[in-house]
Design a protein around this nucleic acid. Structure first.
Lengths: 198, 198
DNA sequence: GAGCATACGGAGCGGCGTTCCGCTTCGCAA
DNA sequence: TTGCGAAGCGGAACGCCGCTCCGTATGCTC
């Protein structure tokens, strides 16, 4: 919330060298642990992997969510930027929306358990939920509006619902070979299409 | 699994009176606690509400899932029976499927957190997932097949995926007034419809 | 080099699910 | 009615978790 404080002056007093080093070490260690054990891995494991104490993690990343956000920031950014790009690519809006949703889902399913943790009301992860929404909701909304404006889809579904729905569909995929989240999200976007019959 | 043992003879040695009493007490207490705090309520709370010790719960219901199953058995049964009834009611198969899905979703969303816990891979709840599948999957499959046979819907979605998808969409609804699970599941079933265009 | 703000480590707290075992109670048989 | 083995009970205790707190160590500045 008050990370860089934004406002006047330069209140960030520059971190100590060992602190900056540790932060990077933690990010690397967390990334490794997330791949190996999923994003729900015990904080202790991450601390151990990084060779630091518990306190160090919590000082750099006050909540688990902050750590996860930091680890995946780049990829979320890429997903956010893909939205406008797809719209500008000449694809029909609904097709662009579908493609973008696929990207979003791919991002989620390739991170063990990220989806499960991203849903709202999951204690300790509210910040993650918020971050995803802040960053990706406008993108999704833009795609949705374009498709609505083109008359391709129904207008009673909000961007939030679509993202939340797609996210939910990706929960708990890792240990279930019989469930293809991508196809189900495809069903969801297909369901958006305005029925041709009256 | 080996509850009544099914097989020959009568190996169930009839329970003691106090045991039967306690089982009922527990069921009632659990139902109350589930309503008040959701199905993820601490086992201790249920024990306290029932006025029994921890051991008593675990003896009667070896896993949390067993307790939940016992509490909701009637309602699951009703949902299962609604499937054939809807098909026989003269509704078009896809309409019947949609209605049934609504019933299923209603059942899930009216129980705090049931959906979240029903997904596979949730430690301590595997049995619950299994039970829902055993009981409701055939029903869903029957509805799906009828709609497929009528040529109303696409054929590349399995009953399991549909149920799992609907279930997933209901996860974490309780604290999110902006997300209408019923409408999203409606999108899913609408997406099943065979597109009228080539 | 001295002194202090900054950062570190990990013991410790409270909450969870689950197990285990000494004690109590039931109900059958004598 | 009484005695006794088995069935059932309660809750302390264990291990795992996220998270906090504070005595100690370290980097930075003067």
């Amino acid at each position: 919330m008050a990370e860089t404080d934004g406002r006047a002056g330069r209140p960030a007093p520059r971190k100590r060298a060992d602190a900056r080093r540790n932060e990077q070490t933690l990010l690397d260690a967390a990334a490794r642990v997330f791949v190996a054990s999923g994003v729900e891995a015990p904080v202790r494991d991450i601390a151990a992997e990084a060779g630091v104490g518990m306190g160090t993690i919590y000082r750099h990343f006050p909540t688990r969510a902050d750590l996860i956000i930091a680890v995946y920031r780049h990829q979320v950014e890429a997903c956010a930027e893909a939205g406008p790009a797809l719209l500008a690519s000449g694809l029909a809006p609904h097709a662009a929306l579908t493609r973008w949703t696929d990207l979003f889902v791919d991002f989620l399913v390739t991170k063990h358990g990220l989806a499960g943790v991203m849903r709202s009301g999951n204690p300790g992860f509210e910040g993650l939920h918020e971050y995803f929404l802040d960053r990706l909701l406008p993108v999704c909304a833009q795609l949705l509006e374009a498709a609505e404006a083109a008359g391709e889809i129904r207008t009673d579904i909000s961007a939030y619902e679509l993202m939340r729905g797609a996210g939910n569909l990706c929960v708990g995929i890792e240990d279930d070979p019989d469930f293809d989240a991508r196809r189900m999200v495809g069903l969801l976007t297909a369901g958006l299409l305005r029925p041709l019959t009256g």
